[in-house]
Simulated scan of single mutants.
Amino acid sequence: MEIRTLAWEEHGAVRDIRARAFGPLSDEAWRWRMEALHRPSFETGRQFAVFEDGRIVATAALHEMTQWWHGRAVSMGGVSGVTVAPEERGRGLGRGLVTGVLERCAAFGHPLAVLYPATTRLYRLLGWEHAGAQHHIEFPAEVLRTVAAGRVPVRRAGPQDAAEVAAVIGRTHESARDCGPVGWTEPRWRGALGSRDDYAYLAEDGFLSYRWSEGGSGLEVNRLVASSEATLRALWAIVGSGSSTAETIRACVSPMDPVLWLPGEREHENVHRSQWMLRVVDAPAAIAARGYPAGVTAGVPLDIDDPQRPANSGHWRLEVKDGEGRLERSAEDAGAVRLGPRGLSALYAGVPVPTLRRSGLLQGGDADALSAVFAATPFSLDYF
């Protein structure tokens, strides 16, 4: 099976297969999505297709992103748009395509790969594992009326602010030592900030993007992050100012987002989770780039078996100290902790060792220290 890189001029050829797999888009919606969100990946050789007899039978994209882990940005490939023509399914095209994308992820130098699965089985076979979720909460708009806010300089943001928006969001995740959120490139932000339906505001240490729901009965907060209480309150007050019209607020937030503690009343909220999966592509690079909890020290021998990424396989010693980690080759150790790619990826994302043992993803050795080393509550604010 040959996987070919698509040029920008070929983006129209992708439309039919994606419509058959995910549903059609209007001409306007398709043009905006391609121009604003996907053009950078076409221009950097990150859109792929499998052809048979001159016809596209499968597609995938690999977006350039970073992912925050304990306040450090790790280079990450965002896998999306994995599509197989309905009439060609069941032939192994999906597995072959994703295997090829995994190889390209390594070639681009991404130690991590993340995706939202349409089917879990395929990705688990190739070493991905569930790691975190995108959380949407829905609550009555009126609860934000009690959020008091002082005067904080806030201005409207547009495509010309793409670099500053990316920097502000990055500083927020770094200072909060967040785990899981992704960072976009400046061209991607420039496209997103050009949406006519989204309203964006920028402060020195915070960012807000929201839209009105269809029919105008609710507000949808795409992203609201801030490093200080004053800015957090000021941005949520902007959202709350629409409560005289909006009945509900639907917001994409961290499960520990401060907004859940701001209102005077908090009786209930509806929560929707979209699970994402993580794949460690380059184990030594991923360990070195990640942040770790302060005060945690550990030295643990590991035995990794990764058939899809043989460079990850073998005998290793993990050392973590002073917030830094490294994974170095070592001699065989009978007491090593044994992991496959799924176990390694889940461990990296903070899944506790007892959970991994009971699910069969980790065996052997004294692994108790690893729960503290990789402790995390991963979340995402983006679907891609």
Rank of each mutant, 00 (worst) to 15 (best):
E220F: 00
S80T: 07
E332W: 08
R326Y: 09
A286I: 04
H173D: 05
T172C: 14
C179A: 06
E267N: 11
A36V: 01
L202H: 02
G12F: 00
M1V: 03
A311N: 14
G206K: 02
I3C: 01
A133V: 00
D322Y: 07
E328T: 13
M34Q: 14
G94L: 05
V239G: 14
T231C: 03
D322T: 06
L339Y: 01
T231Y: 06
T172L: 03
G12M: 01
S380K: 05
H110K: 00
P159L: 00
D16H: 08
A289R: 11
Q308K: 09
H315W: 14
V182P: 11
G170Q: 04
G71D: 10
H268M: 04
L356K: 00
A288H: 13
I3S: 02
R309I: 12
I169T: 04
A331Q: 02
R31F: 01
R358P: 05
A367W: 01
Q275D: 14
D303S: 15
G264N: 13
F108R: 07
G94S: 11
E247M: 12
G216Y: 06
T5I: 12
A61S: 15
S175W: 01
R33S: 15
A131H: 04
F42D: 08
G291F: 11
E247G: 15
H136W: 12
R177N: 15
G78M: 02
V114Y: 10
A21D: 07
V239M: 12
R279S: 03
R124S: 05
H110F: 08
G323D: 09
S75E: 14
G194E: 07
R211H: 10
A331I: 00
L97Y: 09
H315C: 15
V253L: 10
R124A: 04
E88C: 06
H272L: 13
Q363T: 13
E186K: 02
V259H: 06
I249T: 10
G92I: 09
R196P: 15
E214I: 05
Q134A: 12
L362P: 10
L37C: 08
V165H: 06
E204Y: 09
R18N: 10
V320W: 03
L302E: 12
V74S: 01
C105F: 07
S244V: 11
A58L: 09
A375C: 09
G365P: 14
L25M: 13
L112V: 01
W128Y: 12
A118W: 12
A21H: 04
V74K: 00
G325C: 11
E43F: 03
P187G: 03
E52Y: 01
F108A: 07
S41W: 09
Q67C: 06
V225T: 13
A73D: 07
P293H: 06
Q160S: 11
G183A: 06
E2M: 02
D368H: 10
P255H: 03
H272N: 15
E204L: 03
G364H: 02
R188N: 14
A226S: 13
Y116P: 15
V300M: 08
R290T: 10
A289E: 14
F374C: 08
V225G: 13
G183V: 02
R155A: 09
H135N: 15
P181S: 06
N270D: 15
S228N: 13
E174N: 08
A36I: 01
H63D: 04
A49D: 05
E265H: 15
S330F: 08
C105Q: 08
R338A: 09
V373Q: 13
G191H: 04
A192C: 02
A367M: 03
H130R: 14
P263I: 04
